[in-house]
Design a protein around this nucleic acid. Structure first.
Lengths: 250, 250
DNA sequence: CGCTTTAGTGAACGCCGTTAGCAAACACTG
DNA sequence: CAGTGTTTGCTAACGGCGTTCACTAAAGCG
């Protein structure tokens, strides 16, 4: 007697599919732990299989190769990061836009600090992947992550918090790219004029830069603690978008 | 009859040492080509040895392992980049500080674009290296690279091109880090007050961020051409340090 | 010339990704 | 129930990798 069940998306799910799903989840979980413990070089199908009490070829029933596995866990990591940022955002009273942004951005850096290996594979060069590997899963997850910030940013634009450069100050070639960016990423173009998207890009570049620098340890030998530099950059960014900066609590 | 010769630093050099030097250079050259052609994963001692008509263990007479080899070529790449930027700087009339800075920074991005694999290993996460590998060689080369920009920046400070935030606007913890930074990196502290170093850091973070984003292809799916964004960021940075922006020639 | 130092080899160990062929477990039909 | 097709995981194997060790052949030097 088989008990057909429904998964959360309402699709019929046999017992077989459920156990298969669980196995795949175990694979990803172990792979990710290896990533954390031994760096991206330390993720290997054989090691994962060994830990599961399986042999490596068996994993090919679940994953089409090591590259695909890395893409899968990358997608999971984006989800994690997005959850973390969203949780930070939700921990602040809804009306306090300033504090929500501040908290979300600090949560981004905090997550990166606590998940260096993950962050490196997510935001570093795709060194281990085939240049033409199928990374749509990771891209989609990345998009979800970005959405958290874009929502907050949309709000700032709506509240007219900062001075938006007029459209004719945006160079034509940049305008074309920004439009593509805004369309794909879901910033609602009517609410967000091109000048605003330009500001957003600039701010994101700055924060991305300072966090990458910290995680990739490029000033390691010259700067013991990167937090002050991050906070300084954060302050500059917030100033640009008309958000009040407050020093961190701790 | 041995002909003892002098190398450029005046050290006595036997024939043996010269051929040894040449072999090491060949190793590095091949390794670097493999890096360019097959990515950092594609660099292997065995492949290098094969191409030289040697066996892999023989390379251990020259290099203590694959990690050390990667560090060696990373140092070479920093030298290359530094040369490229310095050449760009030198191609501009000496007195035209504005154009020199503009050209140097564009040369930085240009080099990155033409040497994606190299740039990724230099500025990306140290994913393939032991966390405690000896990377002093690469660090030293990186320092030389930075010096090019610091020299130009020193000049801007001397010329009082931009408004330097007063010292008491620099938070204490950031000040401590910036001081360490300036000392190690060779910005002459008397000429460069802390506020100026803060501005320099911020500018560098922005450019580093936008170039990393482009090379690591993080907006790849959403933005076809990153040059306009780079130029926009460049413009913003230059504006901050009182340098006149001019659109690129092409 | 003989002696010492060095460069390079071959074999071996233990990893790795991946493919092919096969056997057991499973789900489902009549 | 038996029979049948599918799914799962295994073993064996290939070729590649980094690295160590014992060893030979050459180069340098007195």
């Amino acid at each position: 007697m088989t008990k057909p069940q429904l998964d959360r998306s309402g699709v019929r799910t046999s017992r077989r599919e459920r156990v298969r799903e669980a196995t795949l989840a175990e694979i990803k979980e172990i792979a990710r732990r290896h990533l954390v413990e031994h760096g991206s070089q330390g993720v290997s199908l054989r090691a994962v299989a060994r830990e599961m009490g399986m042999t490596a070829p068996g994993l090919y029933r679940y994953v089409s190769g090591i590259d695909a596995l890395l893409v899968l866990i990358t997608a999971d990591m984006y989800d994690d990061l997005a959850d973390c940022v969203a949780a930070a955002d939700a921990s602040v009273p809804e009306h306090d836009t300033d504090q929500r942004i501040l908290t979300s951005l600090r949560a981004f850096r905090g997550w990166a600090l606590e998940h260096r290996a993950e962050f490196s594979t997510m935001f570093g060069p795709r060194s281990r992947l085939d240049p033409d590997a199928d990374i749509t899963a990771a891209l989609e997850a990345g998009r979800r992550f970005g959405a958290t910030f874009f929502t907050l940013f949309d709000r700032l634009v709506a509240e007219q918090r900062f001075e938006v450069p007029p459209e004719d100050e945006v160079p034509a070639d940049l305008a074309r790219e920004l439009r593509a960016f805004a369309d794909t990423v879901g910033v609602s173009t009517p609410h967000a004029p091109l000048g605003a998207v330009m500001v957003l890009s600039s701010c994101w570049v700055r924060l991305y830069g300072v966090v990458c620098m910290e995680i990739f340890q490029h000033l390691n030998f010259v700067m013991a603690d990167m937090e002050p530099l991050f906070e300084s950059e954060l302050r500059g960014v917030l100033e640009r978008i008309g958000v009040e900066y407050r020093p961190p609590a701790g």
